[in-house]
Write a protein that binds this DNA or RNA. Structure first.
Lengths: 229, 229
DNA sequence: TATTTTTTTAACAAAATCTTAATGAATTTA
DNA sequence: TAAATTCATTAAGATTTTGTTAAAAAAATA
């Protein structure tokens, strides 16, 4: 028996969940349901759905934040459902990583079609979930970094830098690319304090910070996180 | 200079084209316009746009057929614009390969956001941006150069020179062409230190730097990177 | 508010790169 | 063949970039 794609429906309204379950199952999908943001995030981590339908207006957390949190470590397609909303909301959700945005009431046929679009556009991502190089292990879902099995602490900026480098392992990232990623395009790209952060990361993850094995300098260009088997 | 993504707008209405051109250009896109389906298909083939905005209701051909035809040979993202339409039309267009569907009148912000979604979902072609000759392999996206699978280091100028030569493999490049590319047109074209860099490259990529196989001298003219199978 | 943590700035040391110049080898020209 | 031109090679000083430290400023936490 061929198992269809697994859909995670995150919605607190029973009506909608029931309706989606019926329609989706009759189209060969397998359904998982979450009734809160927290549960939704947990199920995403544990069940690895193929696609997520996220209703806005959950009781426990703003949909925008849910998406942001998900996108920190996974890029499963997300289709956002919402009663109605301003253009700004739509835009910010799409930019936060939503694949599509559908306004209620919607036609089931359209939702199904847009799900098919999202599923066929899946970007294969090698660095999903867990990253490993040498003795360093990063678990994006739990925002945890371990060296020799021992957990390390990172400030938000340090972690953002490490994550960006890890997501682009073996790729040379220019100073500007890194600064844009961390501080946004408005900030004057002054590499001077990028160096400070690089040093701080090296002090935490390298055996000998002045002779790095993992976080390498590419002189005149930027930095690169190397993959060590 | 960074060139923005190239957008092909296929629309017969001057008003819409003008509006899109203004907005998109102000957001850094480069615009190509087609006023008919036929022209749109031709321009897609000749100009290789990064994304296509296809208005339905073209005079010469049904939008659905245009999309079908495009999808036979290319998978550039297509966003469909349309005045209004039935759910079935939407669904059949999405299933025919459209990445998104927007109903007129639409908010420019939303169109831009959905374009960003479509552009970030593009699956990068792994073999694109990779150059190979003999045992030498250059990955432009990663800025990595490997010889026998071992990564080599290059200074910014060395890399710029190697990249320029590789991008123009088998072509004889004059001293002036190379110097213009690397140091800009203001610099007095003195070939003397181009030689220094050529030597440095040879030392890194050639088996026997004094009898180069790859980076060849064309006496009296310039240099050439040869392709070895 | 006081304390701690994190971010940002600034200054100097260290390292890498760029540029120049000088010399010998190879090639072309007279 | 000798002279002239072009090319290869080396090395060293100048310049730019990066590493490192420490302290001030800002933000978060108690």
């Amino acid at each position: 028996m061929v198992r269809g794609p697994v859909v995670l429906v995150i919605d607190d309204e029973l009506q909608i969940r029931r309706m989606l379950r019926l329609s989706l199952e009759s189209h060969g999908y397998e359904i998982i349901e979450a009734t809160s943001a927290e549960e939704g995030i947990q199920l995403t981590a544990s069940k690895h759905p193929d696609i997520i339908i996220l209703d806005l207006g959950l009781p426990d957390k703003d949909g925008f934040l849910v998406l942001k949190e998900l996108r920190e470590w996974c890029n499963t397609p997300v289709i956002v459902l919402s009663v109605k909303s301003s253009d700004e909301d739509k835009i910010s959700l799409l930019d936060a990583g939503a694949n599509d945005y559908i306004t209620k009431p919607f036609s089931m046929g359209e939702l199904l079609a847009r799900m098919r679009v999202a599923l066929r556009n899946i970007v294969p991502d090698a660095t999903e979930g867990i990253f490993k190089t040498g003795d360093l292990l990063i678990d994006f879902a739990h925002r945890s970094v371990k060296l020799h099995g021992k957990r390390l602490k990172f400030t938000p900026t340090e972690y953002a830098l490490l994550r960006f480098l890890a997501r682009n392992a073996e790729k040379v990232l220019t100073h500007n690319q890194i600064i844009n990623e961390l501080w946004g395009p408005e900030i004057e790209p002054d590499p001077s304090y990028l160096r400070v952060y690089i040093l701080q990361l090296r002090r935490k993850i390298e055996k000998d910070p002045s002779h790095p094995d993992i976080l390498l300098t590419e002189p005149g260009v930027g930095y690169r996180l190397s993959l060590i088997s």
